[in-house]
Simulated scan of single mutants.
Amino acid sequence: MNWGWFHKLGSPKWFYQISGRWLPLLGWVSAVLLALGLAWGLGFAPPDYQQGNSFRIIYIHVPAALLAQSCYLMLAVCGVVGLVWKMKLADVALQAAAPIGAWMTVIALLTGAIWGKPTWGAWWVWDARLTSMLILLFLYFGIIALGQAIANRDSAAKACAVLAIVGVINIPIIKYSVEWWNTLHQPATFSIVEKPAMPAEMWLPLLVMVLGFYCFFGTVLLLRMRLEVLKREARSSWAQAEVARLVKEGP
């Protein structure tokens, strides 16, 4: 097996060049999917037979919650790559993704509270799913704080990687909390391996929104990583030439 592509990922210059080619397409795809999913889910999907129109918040809540968990899994993978293979670009990805994951967790918690008020009669309960999601937010905050508090970049990268790897144990707790404990939170809305409980006209726009959220995440992640790469490679000739080109072209 040719692992040349994997070793290329350790090159900031190669990453910057290849990511610049993918960004426009990824940005347009995310915009189209999000616009289509929102219009379809909020305007054309039928109301739920029990929750009425209040169920429509799932078109924001579910994608945000899924992305918040997936993003943390990515942080753990980046932590392993950074510790084992010493790839500095892994730390770039980790630091760039952590704030995005934190915001997705905040959105999931806020929309869950809005959903919970008419459904459960309370904005917040110390439910296993909600509590574990709150812990996920604190883990994100911890990684962001570590990355900013430790002056030495290598030491900060190691500390953030260790916290990301240790904290990943919370992800299966979030996923299986509704099965392990008696919780108010409902089970998964849909599963890849099981037939959706909702009719197609309700879960298809949700699938579009999930794909749109992930494409949006990829777009923002690449933008943040490219900026961080330019900062870290500021002394290299290619980075200086790129900054000069960007300044010359203007906004």
Rank of each mutant, 00 (worst) to 15 (best):
I60F: 05
A159F: 09
W22P: 02
F217K: 02
L137M: 10
Q186W: 07
F44I: 09
F44D: 01
A200K: 15
I100Y: 04
G116Y: 06
S177E: 05
M133I: 12
P24M: 03
G121Y: 05
I173F: 07
Q51C: 01
P46W: 00
E201W: 06
V84Y: 08
R153Y: 12
M1Q: 09
H7D: 11
I150C: 06
V247G: 02
G37I: 09
K86Q: 10
R232D: 07
A76P: 04
A31W: 01
G43F: 04
V84G: 04
L139Q: 07
Y176L: 12
P99F: 04
I18T: 15
I107L: 13
F216K: 11
A68S: 13
A149D: 00
A239N: 03
D48P: 00
V243T: 08
K175E: 09
L139V: 03
E249K: 10
C78Q: 09
G116K: 02
F217H: 10
P12N: 07
Q51P: 03
N182Y: 10
R235G: 12
G27A: 11
Q17T: 13
G218C: 13
A64W: 00
L227R: 15
L110E: 02
W3D: 06
F55S: 04
I114C: 06
P12H: 06
E242S: 14
W238K: 00
G218W: 06
A98F: 08
I144S: 02
A45R: 03
I192G: 12
S155N: 12
S155G: 05
G43A: 08
Y214I: 09
A64G: 01
D91N: 15
Q148L: 12
Q51W: 08
Q50D: 11
A31Q: 00
A68G: 06
K248E: 11
A151S: 14
G43W: 01
P46H: 13
R224C: 03
L146M: 08
P12F: 00
G147I: 08
L204Q: 11
W203N: 10
P172A: 06
L139P: 01
G121A: 08
R224T: 02
V29T: 15
S236C: 00
L38G: 12
A97C: 04
G112Y: 10
Y49P: 03
I192F: 15
P251M: 15
G82S: 12
G142D: 13
M87P: 00
A197N: 14
S70W: 13
F138H: 14
D154P: 01
W14Y: 15
F216W: 13
A65W: 02
A64S: 14
I58M: 05
H185I: 05
A113V: 07
I57Q: 08
P187C: 04
Y49R: 13
R226K: 12
V247D: 14
I18S: 11
K13N: 01
